[in-house]
């Protein structure tokens, strides 16, 4: 699924990293636990989370995740957005909850990886 399509389905605002809008993701993962993300998420997976601090960007950087969706309308601070732009990581914010956002993307054909 194209990142552009993810944003459309989730009615999300793009906050950073619009360079990736035409790129594709095959899998998604919803989690607030960064150690889980580090342990189980493969390169190029879409990450949905309610956590908005710098450590989310760091985590994404370590495992080559290039797109993060913040749920429940959360918007990170400017330093987080700057860091994401710096690393070409796309950030978007949706008003849907983690459960809803995952459900919408799953229904649209994006898979999890277990």
């Amino acid at each position: 699924m194209q990142i552009r399509e993810v944003a459309r389905l989730l009615k999300a605002d793009i906050l950073a990293g619009s360079v990736n809008l035409d790129r594709e993701v095959k899998f998604a993962c919803g989690s607030d636990l960064m150690s889980d993300v580090l342990a189980f998420v493969e390169e190029g997976t879409l990450l949905l989370t309610g956590i908005t601090n710098l450590q989310v960007i760091r985590t994404a950087e370590m495992i080559d995740v290039f797109v993060i969706v913040f749920v429940r309308g959360k918007v990170p601070a400017n330093d987080v957005i700057d860091m994401a732009n710096d690393r070409n990581i796309t950030l978007m914010s949706t008003d849907y909850t983690l459960f809803e956002a995952c459900g919408i993307l799953y229904q649209a054909g994006l898979k999890g990886k277990s």
């Binding site: 607030d32 636990l33 960064m34 150690s35 889980d36 993300v37 580090l38 342990a39 989370t49 956590i51 601090n53 450590q55 989310v56 985590t59």
Partner: peptide, 16 residues
């Protein structure tokens, strides 16, 4: 924990 750490999986992640 607020930053997503403290799940108690760090050391086992390192080992893995």
């Amino acid at each position: 924990r607020e930053m997503g750490f403290g799940a108690g999986m760090g050391l086992s992640n390192m080992k893995r």
